[in-house]
Nucleic acid binder design. Structure first.
Lengths: 236, 236
DNA sequence: CGACAGGTGCTTGTATACAAGCACTGCACG
DNA sequence: CGTGCAGTGCTTGTATACAAGCACCTGTCG
């Protein structure tokens, strides 16, 4: 999908910053100074700046010209959009499943599920497996590359999920739902697979309002607020 | 979806270049020199370069470090991916139509359809109306912002469409299909709407192989080729 | 004649310098 | 005391300089 991308510092910085935003290591609303990032990463402003521009296009960062750059707050509207997008795509992918799915992918998914149920699984490990599981399902229908687009668009959704699991650590429930989907797929029961997928995808989504009540400052408000500087730069 | 983007030259250059790529004014395979573009646009390399980086993330441009930047060839695989994506999303949007659709959008769509059937309609005018029509349909279901994601991902599909219509000028067929979809939607006939939408979306897609036989040099080959310089820089 | 090595001119990647703008600080003044 | 206005220090936007690398061209040497 993407071009070769020989190792440039821009590429690695972009990936690192993106990871830090998605894992909430850089929390929503955090100020990002090009100069500071450049100094801490040991490079000049240029690759840092170009990375921020890419993150801004992903919707994960907001750049206010001549004011500052900030990790974008979790926007409930964008979360809902991502939810709609992934549900549409993943359900359509199930509809397009071939009668003879790729056996190597099946094996990979089975192995993935086993790891998901390993006791003492870390949160970030679970998210990695979760990501690979859903992408694997789409590869089964031959649309694995579409996952790239979905993954790029669901940054706000991912952050909301992490917020939810941070205070309610129970990935086991989702692991069970994954297995349910998988069993229906290999069993050829398309209707059950669709139902299980829909249930699974909406489980997280319905949790957002509760999280929002807990930590409203991480979410965007309806009115498009503008950052202000209060001695140090904050976005309130 | 995106932030305000106070007019920066980067923003306008990005939009202009994107438009030129999508309309085939910059044909697939064309070499893009940062220096040349900067000179012709009367700015420095910086905003041009940043625009190219954004276009590269859109998949419309490929940047080969230390070699050159090129308008990406139409990749049949990416066209198929975009087709799958938009079909999944637009059909799901139809499923989510409210029983009481926004009347102002309905009026807007009706007006749009009238213009589509105006005789002597230019190709680019038709594409603009087409884009607005499909976005309008998604706004009816409250998912208008998702169209932004779809639109960003379907660059290769759009270029393939233009290639098809350039040699087979008959947007009238598509205009009729649009009306068919619209009538089913306002009539509340969901099944017919779905069928008409699916038929419509696949009409263009099925035309691609024919175009590819006509102009293979505009399409990407399976092997990931690398550009070479032959006196002047070309990508063959 | 052929092959190889270095020059040349382009490319993008990175670093740095300067420009434009916003917001707070603090002093001057009514 | 309140108000206004310049100063200051930060921000990102743009321009420019330099670094690294690839490919062709050409002269030289075997």
């Amino acid at each position: 999908m993407a071009q070769t991308n020989r190792r440039t510092s821009r590429r690695s910085i972009y990936l690192k910053l993106r990871q830090m935003v998605l894992t909430l290591e850089l929390p929503p609303g955090a100020a990002l100074s090009e100069n500071e990032l450049a100094a801490s990463l040991g490079v000049s402003r240029t690759p840092v700046r170009e990375s921020l521009i890419l993150l801004a296009q992903d919707g994960l960062v907001q750049i206010f010209p001549k004011i500052g750059s900030f990790v974008s707050r979790v926007d409930p509207a964008q979360v809902a959009d991502a939810q709609f997008l992934r549900e549409a795509v993943e359900l359509a992918s199930l509809d397009a499943l071939p009668s003879d799915p790729d056996h190597s992918v099946i094996t990979e998914l089975r192995d993935n599920l086993a790891r998901q149920q390993r006791p003492g699984l870390g949160l970030e490990e679970f998210f990695e497996l979760d990501e690979a599981f859903h992408q694997g399902l789409m590869r089964l229908s031959g649309h694995g590359n579409v996952w790239t687009t979905v993954a790029a668009a669901k940054g706000h959704l991912d952050r909301a999920r992490r917020l939810g699991l941070h205070e309610n650590v129970s990935p086991a429930v989702f692991a069970d739902q994954h297995r349910e989907i998988f069993d229906a797929v290999v069993g050829g029961d398309l209707a059950s697979a669709r139902t299980a997928m829909r249930t699974h995808l909406r489980a997280v989504f319905s949790d957002i309002e509760r999280i929002r009540a807990h930590s409203p400052e991480l979410f965007a408000t309806g009115s498009s607020s503008v950052p202000v500087r209060r001695n140090v730069v904050v976005w309130e």
